[in-house]
Amino acid sequence: MYTAPHRSQSARDRLIQTARELFLQHGVPHVGINRVIEEAGIARMTLYNHFASKDDLVAAAFEQEVELRRQSITSVQDGLDGTFEKVLALFVVALELASLKGFRGCAFVNLAIEAAAPDSALHGLAKAHKDWILENIMGHLPPETFSEPDMLARQILVLWDGGIVGAYVHQSDAPIHAAHQAARALMRGAAS
């Protein structure tokens, strides 16, 4: 998943791209500022001109990942018709994520764990992303079609998270396929 930053990018953009890719592949605690600086090809002072701390860089890197994930989800959903197809498209995105080099499970579950403090800004960023996915699911579950759409959306989100984490633990996309099938069954059972 890591790709060398383009020299035509601004120093700030190179820092964010490099940090994002390194954090996703190795985890926030295992990537130091020196490695980001070296691989981005910038001076230490340049880093501190743009980011006051490592946490600020982590936030910028994961904000970029949020945007990329949202674009990926909505672009897959945009070409589809029907509630089932749009909701189950999340599992297509999950399979794409699991196929990436350096895949380590859900980046946002990892961030929430690595940030440790539930009241930290980084934990809040992870939660906000999960809330967006939940809202996305709920937006495709009309109450006139599904009984208890809020609960159904929460169940599907748990399946999404579990499938991605399971794919990393088992080094197989089978958990994502199982989660996809379970989500389909839940939707069928909740459909009026």
Rank of each mutant, 00 (worst) to 15 (best):
T3V: 12
L80Y: 13
R70L: 11
G166T: 09
R69C: 04
S75Y: 09
I113Y: 06
A179K: 13
P149C: 07
P143M: 01
P5V: 11
A60D: 02
N49V: 04
D173Q: 11
V31T: 04
R188V: 14
P29G: 06
F51S: 01
G166A: 10
S8Y: 10
D55G: 06
H140S: 08
K86R: 15
L134T: 02
E148W: 03
G41D: 05
K86S: 12
E67Y: 11
I33P: 00
D55R: 09
S172N: 03
G27V: 04
L122P: 06
I113L: 12
P143G: 00
H30T: 14
Q181G: 03
H140F: 05
A115Q: 03
D173E: 11
S147V: 08
A185T: 14
V92R: 13
R154N: 07
I33R: 10
G124S: 00
A4L: 14
G139E: 08
A4D: 08
R188E: 05
I176C: 00
G27T: 01
E65N: 10
G82L: 07
I113C: 00
V87I: 06
W132Q: 01
A43F: 01
M1H: 07
L97H: 12
A185H: 03
H177N: 04
S120R: 03
M1Y: 12
A191I: 01
P143K: 01
D161H: 12
V36Y: 00
A112C: 06
L22E: 10
R70W: 12
N49R: 10
